[in-house]
């Protein structure tokens, strides 16, 4: 892997720093994400994985460093100029964030109405199709409050796909789900990349998910990209900290806050 921007890289973080008050989260993060990859950002809880991806859609701003997307610098864009970027980079939040006041199909229809210029009827018809793709067609008329977490997440994926984004960010998509539902989400993420050519960035600490579908992985530790590589690189790594994380051992050289 090269350190300079290669033509194939779509997203690039260059020496990104971010602190919340005295709490320094990112301390010089540098990483690259290639086109149409399923890219995993892994690490222990609270290490700044979600913080990292929220920078890509401008929900958080860097203290220092640069972020490039498709050859364009985006970290210094104003809130107004971030909206075009947000149309190209979708995000599926950890808690799905479906709108309570709307049914699933109305949730999915909202971005269709707003961005694809569809009328209400066409938008609802298209949203039924999208819900079908995530196997939620039977629940199109349900309210989010009545559904399980796994179902909400699949509906949230459908809503993000309605934007026809180039990149989808997933914040802990399988956390809190049972193994069967977790693997279903994994399969959906893989299909997006293989069938639709979407680049996926997945924040996770779910090992079966990581070793099941990742093309490439960055392991964040102490605010930096401690190691980046393919699944095989990680499986074969002899680094004691990486080994401790992927074996899930409570004892080892890794320093985590509070221990």
């Amino acid at each position: 892997m090269t350190s300079s921007a290669t033509p194939s890289s779509l997203i690039e973080f260059r020496d990104v720093h971010k602190a919340f008050g005295a709490k320094r989260i990112l301390q010089g993060l540098t990483m690259e994400v290639g086109r149409q990859e399923v890219f995993f950002i892994i690490g222990t809880s609270g290490v700044g994985k979600s913080v990292t991806i929220k920078h890509l859609i401008g929900l958080l701003r860097v203290d220092q460093g640069e972020i490039h997307f498709d050859g364009e610098r985006i970290d210094n864009l104003s809130e107004k100029h971030f909206y075009p970027v947000r149309k190209r980079i979708g995000m599926v939040f950890q808690h799905a964030t479906l709108f309570d006041s709307m049914s699933l199909r109305e949730n999915v229809a909202l971005p269709l109405r707003k961005h694809q210029g569809l009328g209400t009827k066409e938008a609802l018809a298209k949203s039924d199709e999208l819900l079908e793709r995530v196997h939620m067609g039977n629940f199109a008329h349900s309210s989010p409050a009545t559904l399980s977490d796994g179902m909400k997440k699949r509906a949230a994926i459908a809503r993000t796909l309605a934007m026809e984004p180039q990149v989808v960010l997933f914040d802990e998509p399988t956390t809190g789900l049972d193994p069967v539902n977790a693997r279903r989400i994994d399969r959906l993420i893989r299909e997006l990349s293989d069938d639709l050519g979407v680049t996926s960035i997945v924040v996770s600490h779910d090992l079966p998910s990581i070793f099941g579908i990742a093309d490439r992985i960055t392991f964040i530790y102490q605010g930096k990209a401690y190691k980046s590589g393919t699944r095989q690189d990680f499986e074969q790594s002899g680094d004691p900290i990486v080994r401790q994380f992927i074996s899930g051992n409570s004892h080892g050289p890794m320093e985590t806050p509070g221990f």
Binding site: G58, K87, L98
Partner: peptide, 13 residues
């Protein structure tokens, strides 16, 4: 419940 960030993420102000 982050629904406002959810709107922004859908490029809706």
């Amino acid at each position: 419940t982050e629904q406002l960030d959810g709107l922004r993420a859908l490029a809706i102000d």
